[in-house]
């Protein structure tokens, strides 16, 4: 009887510990978002979204910053999605399992944990200097693509792994080639997981500051980029720059910029959740 009571207490207290732990995260997030909204929401208006940077906080806008961020996002997506998905398919379906593939596998997993500023230094040397892209959008997009490639590769592989082998075997049994099996069976079944991984990776890329500063993204750009070779600035740099200004009005601008950036990130994550939900309903093994 006594023993039973003890276990019950432990059981209950673990439940409360779990609730408390969850609450810490949620409350901190709520405080953070609440205080940012309080500071910044009143500052967001059409002018803020369509104005060029300025020394006067009330005249300054984020046009070039968000335009730069979207350019960078789109270019990064174009570069990283084909490379990452193809590499994932190769490693999972074609690559032979030997020492070399083990080494590649370990390195890809490790790369996903390398601090982003290191990718910035790599990008500076390879894309900005050796390949002579300069501090352009293209150099930034290649650098960020490198940064998120490991995430996309890992997500692709995990999604492919989750496809039941019975589907694959059935396809082979019907006389399909390997490519036909991948194209018509595996990719459709794994698509939800792959898209979710891609979108989460891209939403990480859009929030990065360090690598784009290192490759030479600027703080003051009074024009919207017109081609991938143009110089650019992005939202996180604009926010970083405003936070370090003495005038309090710039801090409010930064809060407003953060709301926009958070909005974009939430939107991307929302799309990811939606994809996953839709796919789960369609693909039923």
């Amino acid at each position: 009887m006594i023993k039973w009571n003890k276990h019950r207490i432990i059981d209950n207290s673990f439940q409360y510990l779990g609730i408390a732990s969850t609450a810490v995260g949620l409350i901190l997030l709520a405080i953070f978002i609440g205080s940012i909204l309080l500071d910044g929401v009143a500052r967001i208006d059409w002018d803020f979204l369509t104005s060029l940077p300025s020394r006067k906080a009330e005249r300054a806008g984020i046009l070039t910053a968000w335009a730069g961020s979207i350019w960078l996002l789109v270019l990064t997506a174009f570069i990283s999605i084909p490379l990452g998905v193809a590499a994932g398919i190769y490693l999972e379906e074609y690559g032979k399992k030997n020492k070399l593939s083990n080494l590649v596998e370990i390195n890809i997993t490790n790369l996903a944990g390398v601090p982003s500023v290191i990718y910035g230094i790599l990008g500076l040397e390879i894309f900005v200097r050796t390949m002579r892209f300069g501090g352009s959008l293209l150099a930034g997009a290649f650098t960020l693509a490198l940064l998120i490639l490991p995430i996309i590769i890992v997500a692709t592989r995990e999604s492919i792994k989750a496809v039941p082998s019975s589907i694959k075997e059935a396809s082979f049994g019907m006389g399909a080639t390997k490519w036909q099996t991948i194209r018509h069976q595996i990719l459709p079944a794994a698509g939800g997981g792959i898209s979710t991984g891609i979108i989460l990776a891209l939403s990480r890329a859009i929030g990065e500051t360090a690598p784009v500063i290192v490759i030479g993204a600027l703080a003051y750009v009074p024009f919207v980029p017109k081609s991938p070779m143009d110089e650019f600035t992005v939202l996180p740099i604009q926010i970083f720059n405003w936070v370090s200004r003495p005038d309090h009005a710039f801090v409010i601008n930064a809060a407003a910029g953060i709301i926009i950036l958070l909005g974009v990130t939430f939107l991307l994550n929302g799309i990811a959740v939606y994809f996953r939900y839709k796919w789960q309903k369609k693909v039923d093994f």
């Binding site: 030479g216 600027l218 703080a219 750009v221 009074p222 110089e231």
Partner: peptide
Amino acid sequence: FRSVESKVRVTIGIS
């Protein structure tokens, strides 16, 4: 300077 010479594009970094 933008209002004087609108055609010249000035970019500034903070390295």
